[in-house]
């Protein structure tokens, strides 16, 4: 470290060959992801070919289909098409609710784990990390198994006499919500844990010394300090929830479509409308970019 310059100097032992080190990742991701994502934009303006694929004629049909209903033969006066807008709004709401639920459960959990003694902490952390590594499909299938009409949850509640007839959770918005919450809960815990672990508890003691109560300390001192971890957790839950496919598909059934299932159906399912799927993907991607943009701007501001 060179003395006198604010903070650490950036290590540059490999600067002369930097380009060669970075080139493979740039080429691979640039060629197989960046260009393809730009290609989606192009596809969203093309004409659909029935049973998948596109015809290279530029048109706004996909976006038009998203927003307007022009009747069965496309010659009625346009009215607002609510089907797809509803799907998007439902997706945003579901993702938002999942984020809030994950935060409500995830924050106290992360806090509790981060404040244990070192040995216990790593055991707790291990327990929270394991589900993160377990196949999402298997976890979603497990949830479906648990909450289905004749599933163990209903049997258990019936046996206890809490309910008289099985709860109809499966194939509802609640089931999808449960699936999202369950899928992404570890994503909320881990970044908050990292933030709380770095938190200096002398700050809380200083707060108590200056007559703040326990919950005032939490609100006035702790939350502002660990905020970056909370925001990171919220983004890690919100973004994948918004584009989720497995939870709505396996738990929500046909009526509770989210963006992910809508897109999937255009490419893999019956609909076979690639330009429409591309347009929906672009709209989803734009929403994610808006979230990430505000996040990045917030972070840049923190650093000033």
């Amino acid at each position: 470290m060179a003395a006198g310059i604010g903070g650490r100097t950036v290590s540059s032992a490999f600067a002369p060959i930097r380009l060669w080190l970075l080139l493979p990742s740039w080429v691979v991701i640039g060629f197989f992801l960046l260009i393809p994502v730009l290609l989606i934009l192009v596809y969203s303006f093309l004409t659909k070919e029935f049973r998948g694929g596109v015809i290279w004629d530029f048109t706004l049909a996909a976006y038009d289909q998203f927003l307007f209903d022009r009747g069965l033969f496309g010659d009625d006066p346009p009215t607002i098409q609510w089907t797809y807008i509803t799907i998007f709004v439902r997706s945003i709401l579901q993702a938002a609710v999942a984020t809030v639920l994950c935060l409500l459960i995830g924050f106290p959990t992360a806090w509790y784990i981060a404040t244990r003694a070192a040995r216990m902490r790593s055991i707790w952390l291990f327990l929270v990390t394991v589900p993160y590594w377990v196949n999402l499909l298997i976890r979603t299938v497990s949830m479906k198994f648990l909450i289905r009409e004749n599933g163990p949850l209903n049997e258990f509640l019936l046996a206890l006499g809490i309910i008289d007839s099985p709860l109809e959770i499966i194939n509802t918005d609640i089931a999808v919500q449960l699936g999202l919450f369950y899928s992404y809960l570890p994503f909320m815990v881990l970044p908050i844990y990292a933030a709380v672990e770095r938190y200096n508890f002398a700050l809380s003691e200083a707060g108590a010394d200056l007559y703040a109560g326990r919950w005032t300390i939490m609100r006035e001192i702790v939350l502002p300090v660990v905020k970056p971890g909370i925001i990171a957790g919220c983004i890690l839950v919100f973004v994948p929830s918004l584009g989720a496919f497995l939870a709505p598909d396996l738990l929500g059934g046909a009526k509770n479509f989210m963006i992910g299932s809508l897109i999937e159906e255009q490419f893999k399912g019956q609909a076979g409308n690639w330009p429409f799927g591309a347009a929906s993907s672009m709209i989803l991607l734009s929403m994610v970019l808006v979230v990430l943009f505000f996040y990045a701007r917030g972070q840049a501001r923190e650093q000033v």
Partner: peptide, 26 residues
């Protein structure tokens, strides 16, 4: 460079899937 390297995490998986399918098909 960092944004490019983390792009596969940032982009929703379903969008990556669509992008890759379209690209391979093109």
């Amino acid at each position: 460079s960092f944004a490019l390297i983390s792009m596969p995490i940032m982009v929703p998986e379903i969008v990556t899937a669509v992008a890759t399918l379209i690209f391979f098909s093109t």
